[in-house]
Design a protein around this nucleic acid. Structure first.
Lengths: 345, 345
DNA sequence: CTGAAAGCGCTAACAC
DNA sequence: GTGTTAGCGCTTTCAG
């Protein structure tokens, strides 16, 4: 491999027979360069493929056009979809992404992550780690004193902290109300792991929808899964054992619904004739399940790109000298997609 | 938000009443600092949370401890799994990740991506974009002259280019041979989109396995899907229409197998009794399909982490002054996971 | 229109 | 042990 060193502005200046200043003016499209000089410099830049160092530029401008993104669980489709939205929007706005993935969802040793990101002069940080257990504890102390703009992708809205999130509570409610509207009364729930905030919110939505329909939620069965396919089937068996007269189930994600469908099939329970099912997340595959799965869709790509849009806006404001930036708490609305698995024919 | 400026080494030096050099020695754990001075400096650093600028350091050391990662299709689980492996290993080796996602798989306008990465002084580049259509055309020209180490995650092995990949051809062969061993003879294939290199390789594996078993592969039916669930069902219907006496199918990914299973169920085709099925990829969900899916597993996390290990090794060699670094082409072996969908009971 | 000088935050090489 | 000088590659400021 031919490791030729990169050209410096000085070398380019020498070749063009001008000062580095003039080169700087050309690459930054500033006025005060004669057309001929400009052209000559441009030619040389093209010919030798000179690329100004963003590092040196960042140092002096105190601006890096880089976002720190902290995520966790990239092996799951949710976090990746969010990241997908983030990279797309960042690219569009000409920001680079410095990516960190936490080794576990419930890591609370976040100091090193911050240090590393800040050492590299990121202009802002997107915290795309779901709230699990007490993994946002560090927040309570750090709260006010971020040296750069900060946005949370999953956190209870706080007036002092920018955030974007889907309304998981509303989603749970929508799923349940859809079942209620179909005339079902005995509606169980398979929840996600309850140390996840979103799992609790979805469950709460289910409970409140029941309550509002005059049904005591405590009289309805609920089993806890762990988001994985396998756990859905297990939780379903528990539900059936405890509550054989079940008419419908709201499952907290589509993955768990997969194996619920399978268990149902094995037991000879027909869906939706014997049991209606609603999932959550809107996985692309869910419309190809058998039967096609009714689900609550969240556009996670949009979640990611909204976060970038927001934080970049804040960053730009800040650099324009506007001091008091108002903090937005954005809540996105999920969308119910009705398919065969929940339709009383 | 309280945007306090970051401390500089100069300020810390002033507080400690020493020169910046001494601070530098302390933060880099170098000798030649008296224990007392060292302790005093450390205290101040801790108290004020001073964080040295990795940017400034990179400038002078000509080393950034950062890897450029180029990916595409993060909304799919494959690319995300690879990225997962990359971030984990990079973290472990204390490298940061600068992430770029191509807007489409077949983008061949890669210049800006490179420029942006090199402008930020990445020490190496991992190209984790699958080979689709002619999207590696630019490679043919650029070939030798990368200014930094480079590794490909999906490319035909080339002696002048480091690469890591799974043996898709072998995977296709393994799947088909498994079916042959079960005694099936009429084995069809649902391929991925054939402008993908990996789809062609898997198909070739199927063909060669048949040929080696004395079966003319051209006499066996093959339909092309596009990796998505939906396309699998469609392709399957074509297969059946053309070749009703089908005994088994090798499907080029698990996603397409999902809807094949569904179509089979709707048509009353029992699996595996009437038709054996083998998938590819080893999705976590595939063991919860009905019936559980036999599949060819690739550990994509390992693929990502291997790439990082390799490129970091090359980088370190280079900085140690070793000039001729040997180029590795690593080929990982997939693994057949046998489940009910392909077992002649 | 163009260039010279200073300096972003840090470290290498040398002095003392 | 510690400080001084120079400079990484660039931009800002100010002279001309």
């Amino acid at each position: 491999m031919n490791k030729q060193k990169r050209l410096t502005i000085k070398q380019v200046a020498q070749m063009a027979g001008v000062s580095t200043q003039t080169i700087s003016r050309v690459i930054n499209n500033r006025p005060d360069v004669s057309p001929e000089t400009r052209q000559r410099v441009k030619d040389i830049i093209d010919r030798y493929g000179y690329q100004p160092s963003a590092l040196a530029r960042s140092l002096i401008q105190q601006r890096n056009y880089t976002l720190g993104v902290v995520t966790a669980g990239l092996k799951y489709i949710g976090p990746s979809m969010i990241l997908h939205g983030i990279t797309n929007k960042a690219e569009e706005l000409d920001y680079s992404i410095l990516l960190k993935e936490l080794p576990r969802f419930d890591t609370d040793d976040v100091e090193p992550i911050f240090k590393s990101l800040l050492a590299r002069h990121v202009d802002g940080i997107i915290w795309a780690v779901p709230a699990v257990g007490d993994n946002q504890r560090w927040l309570k102390q750090t709260s006010e004193s971020f040296p750069v703009p900060f946005i949370f992708l999953t956190a209870p809205p706080r007036s002092d902290l920018a955030s974007v999130d889907y309304d998981n509570y509303l989603g749970g409610k929508m799923a349940t109300q859809h079942l209620l509207r179909q005339g079902y009364q005995q509606i169980g729930h398979i929840s996600g792991p309850l140390d996840w905030l979103s799992a609790r919110q979805r469950k709460q939505g289910w409970q409140d929808a029941l309550r509002e329909a005059g049904i005591n939620p405590d009289s309805m069965p609920c089993s806890e899964g762990n988001w994985s396919s396998g756990s859905g089937g297990v939780a379903f068996e528990q539900l059936l054992a405890n509550y054989p007269s079940l008419e419908a189930v709201f499952v907290a994600n589509d993955q768990m619904a997969v194996s619920l469908l399978r268990v149902a099939f094995q037991k000879g329970i027909r869906i939706p004739q014997d049991l209606a099912v609603v999932g959550f997340d809107g996985l692309a595959e869910s419309q190809f399940f058998w039967p096609p799965l009714t689900t609550v869709y969240q556009d996670l790509h949009a979640l990611g790109s909204t976060a970038v849009k927001e934080i970049v806006q804040t960053i730009e404001y800040l650099y324009e000298g506007k001091d008091s930036v108002n903090v937005n708490n954005i809540i996105l609305q999920p969308q119910l997609i009705v398919r065969a698995s929940s339709l009383k024919s």
